[in-house]
């Protein structure tokens, strides 16, 4: 069974001057159970609107959403018992870590024996009795995530779970998400601005721009879609006229000369490095260093944003 299935979603908001701003345009997607599914896109692409619809907080203008086979607009209560979400750093301000989890546990109708476990698991024991507004950003995020698991959900929506966190806390949070996913096998749908985060966490990704899905698939699928290439970068110590005696071998698509660097666009950096070293042998004295950069999601993101 699919965890999420949505078809032809259109959503618009009324603006101050009475006009309607379209936030989602004909969005359709399917998310398998047990997947970590990423929703990427630039600001105002419609990511939060989409996640709000999937988590039953918004009703779209048209289209259908089914969560675990249930109609999201008719069987809302049943769905909400099986899902949860973390979106932004806002929780009831005067409640302590414990009280906050207890409140949400009760609101989800579950007994509070999971609360202590969550406090420990999200490294919040030290802050158990600290009120939400007095927590650091990192701990607020941890609490928001802990809250998202309070009802032992089968599907969790995480809206930018590491935004605003320092790299160390962000790394811990990503590790925690992966660990929970591995241990409990739950479906996770996340939005993020960080391509490295999406690369690390997501099994499949959809790219949204101006409310429309512009690409979807695994990371490799997406790289193929845009024809993303690995790069072998040869750093030169001084600018020189460089010409090659023979044509670059197969697999080396193009060469660019930029900022005292020779950039070779290749099918696989690892495979082609030897050939490139041979090619630049005559200029060896001028070479300061060679680095290989794999095509990454950032390339995909930039290319797709450009195309849209």
């Amino acid at each position: 069974m699919k965890a999420v299935e949505c078809k032809n979603l259109w959503m618009s908001y009324k603006t101050l001057f009475g006009r309607r701003k379209v936030a989602l345009r004909d969005v359709s997607l399917e998310i398998e159970e047990g997947e970590i599914f990423g929703i990427l896109g630039p600001n105002a692409a419609g990511k939060t609107t989409l996640i709000s619809i999937l988590s039953t907080l918004l009703i779209p203008d048209s289209g259908s959403v089914s969560i675990f086979g249930m109609d999201a607009f008719k069987e809302t209560k049943k769905i909400r018992e099986r899902i949860n979400m973390s979106s932004g750093l806002n929780l009831p301000w005067s409640l302590s870590v414990y009280e906050c989890l207890k409140f949400f546990g009760m609101a989800y109708g579950v007994k509070d024996n999971r609360i202590e476990e969550l406090i420990e698991s999200f490294e919040l024991s030290e802050f158990r009795d600290v009120e939400f507004e007095e927590l650091s950003t990192g701990n607020k995020q941890k609490l928001s995530l802990a809250k998202a698991f309070v009802n032992d959900p089968e599907l969790v929506f995480l809206d930018e779970p590491t935004t605003g966190l320092d790299p160390d806390v962000a790394r811990k949070v990503r590790k925690k998400i992966l660990k929970i996913h591995e241990e409990e096998g739950i479906t996770i749908v996340l939005t993020t601005h960080y391509m490295a985060e999406a690369e690390l966490l997501c099994d499949r990704i959809t790219f949204l721009n101006h409310g429309r899905i512009i690409a979807e698939g695994t990371q490799d699928d997406l790289k193929k879609i845009i024809g993303a290439k690995d790069r072998v970068i040869v750093e030169l110590s001084y600018i020189d006229t460089i010409s090659f005696d023979k044509l670059p071998p197969e697999g080396i698509y193009s060469v660019e000369f930029r900022d005292e660097k020779l950039i070779f666009f290749v099918d696989s950096g690892e495979k082609r490095i030897k050939e490139i070293v041979k090619l630049i042998e005559p200029y060896w004295n001028n070479v300061k260093g060679i680095t290989v950069e794999e095509a990454n999601l950032e390339d995909v993101f930039l290319e797709l944003a450009k195309r849209a």
Binding site: W93, A107, F132
Partner: peptide, 14 residues
């Protein structure tokens, strides 16, 4: 005031 209304309405409480 806490800007946490969406969490309350996302729960199965009516």
């Amino acid at each position: 005031w806490s800007k946490s209304l969406k969490y309350t309405f996302a729960s199965p409480s009516s």
